[in-house]
Design a protein around this nucleic acid. Structure first.
Lengths: 373, 373
DNA sequence: CTGAAAGCGCTAACAC
DNA sequence: GTGTTAGCGCTTTCAG
């Protein structure tokens, strides 16, 4: 059933039917009703391709997920983020086109997607410290929103990110408040912007408390268990091993735990581990179910916000507004908690609660949480 | 730059240019060269929408991921599977359209996507035991491949699945071989086909060894840590508690571990836990890095196979072949390993290796692995 | 308020 | 070998 068929059936012109269905004002209420009823009855759906060609809008948003050619693991964060974005798209009649692109083909992929005209906008995932994609997309004049930031880029652009620096600064500071002076950082690859920011936060905490930063305690690499264990082993082998670890992912934290156990040490007694990760709901317990959910949903909420921002941008452009104003949303990470056996939560400010882990308030998990915009 | 511009530039008709670019034989080699060079030079990309409209092929595959309205967590398995499928699509010039659909709107979503004509085929995720989507898609005459199976459906259809029954049977049997007689199953929701199959495997192992199946030892629910802990607590509270747990996901296994620890028991000494999950790379160690990778890549490989199967089906149909033959691929799950501190692997057949966990060969992890088709 | 006609950018019969 | 013509199904001026 297409427009022509339907209009023939109604003994109206395709034009009128189209207008009736698309809410144009110049059609009489009576015929609009009639048309809508018929459309419903015959289950009419305008052909998407034709509509796209006619309007010049593809009604689709591209999500480009870069895959490093070495480690081809898809970061689980993307799944939740994309789920959130997807909700917004379907509410607005947009499709989501997902491209998993090897990072060496990225530029080509973007140019192609643009030239072929099959998306109206793009969400950029996994930005690096200085990410060429931002300049590229600006040059192509394709609306986009970055999931994360690219600190090395000076021009304005739209982004949605989590306050990585602040959360790592607080996590590190927290350990220091508990008496730790030798704290290790097991970070993600610092070419990735989020990892660079996490390191900055880690260092800031040292600076703020006048503690020396020991390069031997800072490592970066893939966020896998193997890497976490490897680096932790190295550091535990130092003459002055760290007394606490701040890690950048759940997997790394599990690797650290393994190394710690191998060394015959006990977590929460000899060694503290703090991990920051969107997945870390995996580790908590007790009250944890809601925390887990909250963690995942906050990433999802980030996806929603990014999508909404992008669609607004596209609408504005289509409405002829210049819009060189750039928007950004910074989501605050909040401290949550470990394995609570103790009674009272260790408070960290109005909306922050840290529960002691295994009775000893020395191990904490940190997660990204509620949005603040 | 569009076809018309390009052809004007070359002083050729759009037709000829189109033919040259699309590899039609009736164009002279000389002009083909000239056209290709010009296209390259001007960075010409045919407009996707126009092409779609003209050819009637949307060159896109839809992946519909159902979200249960209660627990809106996206199963991480999807990410890897989709990444694999994505590789195949981009190699063949297809786009991937991802829809996250609340499970109560599924039928509508499928009908819509079909009527709008924006996909040439669909991958069905998360099939239930009797899944109406299969009949629906058959009725709509839209090519599709199921990621998983739907045991209650009698008609033929294409699918790619893992041998869930067999792997759970072997896991359970393995525990029995180690002397366990009271084994608990912490399963996913058995309305999901994979969970039903896992249960069947669990039961088969009992039948094969003439052991009674105790309903008190079988639970199903969301595969979260909280549920795992809850059920494990209940069972550990029985007068005859189980001595081993077979769980359906990493999260559940972690919940069980928590409950076990709370009860003052020690894993590997008092209690064994076996988990089967695509994610369970998260838990292994030592030799584990490659296993982790292999696990994830095997899911990815499943995605590749499903995609290839679907594209073949679409091509065949387009070539006018009837193809009422249905294909299927069953991937075998292989046993891998726990936390290896002991030396010799405990062998389970030619391609199967089980390493002892913490020296005591009583805890094992089972993962899905290499394809066999 | 409704309709006729043109056109979005491409492909595919059908001539030449 | 190459060009002409007519659509694909819709939207959108422009008339009425």
């Amino acid at each position: 059933m297409n427009l022509k068929d339907l209009s023939a059936l109604l003994k109206l012109s395709p034009t009128t039917v189209s207008r009736a269905l698309n809410g144009y004002p110049e059609v009489s209420e009576a015929t609009r009703m009639r048309v809508q009823a018929a459309a419903q009855l015959h289950n009419y759906r305008p052909n998407a391709q034709a509509k796209r060609l006619a309007t010049g809008r593809s009604m689709a948003i591209g999500h480009v997920i870069p895959i490093t050619t070495q480690h081809e693991i898809v970061n689980p964060v993307f799944a939740d983020f994309i789920a959130g974005a997807g909700e917004v798209y379907s509410a607005h009649g947009y499709d989501m086109i997902l491209s998993i692109v090897p990072d060496n083909h990225e530029e080509r992929a973007y140019r192609e997607v643009h030239a072929k005209g099959n998306v109206d906008g793009i969400i950029v995932h996994g930005p690096r410290h200085s990410d060429p994609r931002i300049a590229l997309l600006t040059e192509l004049d394709l609306p986009f929103v970055v999931h994360g930031r690219s600190s090395g880029v000076k021009q304005g652009y739209n982004w949605v990110d989590v306050n990585n620096a602040r959360s790592f600064e607080r996590a590190t500071g927290l350990l220091m408040d508990l008496g730790h002076e030798r704290i290790a950082l097991i970070n993600g690859l610092e070419t990735m912007d989020f990892a660079a920011r996490r390191r900055a936060g880690f260092e800031n905490a040292h600076v703020a408390r006048n503690l020396a930063i020991n390069p031997q305690y800072m490592t970066q690499g893939e966020m896998t268990e193997g890497q976490g264990a490897k680096y932790a082993r190295l550091m535990l082998g130092l003459t002055q091993p760290p007394t606490a670890f701040v890690t950048s992912s759940l997997l790394s934290a599990m690797g650290v735990r393994r190394a710690v156990e191998e060394a015959g040490l006990k977590i929460g007694r000899d060694i503290s581990i703090v991990t920051h990760d969107d997945e870390l709901g995996y580790l908590r317990n007790g009250e944890a179910e809601p925390v887990f959910t909250a963690t995942r949903s906050s990433v999802r909420e980030g996806g929603r916000k990014a999508a909404a921002m992008l669609l607004a941008q596209i609408d504005a452009r289509h409405a002829g507004q210049p819009l060189d104003q750039h928007q950004s949303i910074l989501m605050e990470a909040s401290l949550v908690l470990g394995r609570s056996t103790g009674p009272a939560p260790h408070s960290l400010g109005a909306d922050r609660t840290l529960l002691p882990l295994d009775g000893a308030p020395r191990v904490a998990l940190i997660t990204q949480s509620v949005a603040r915009d």
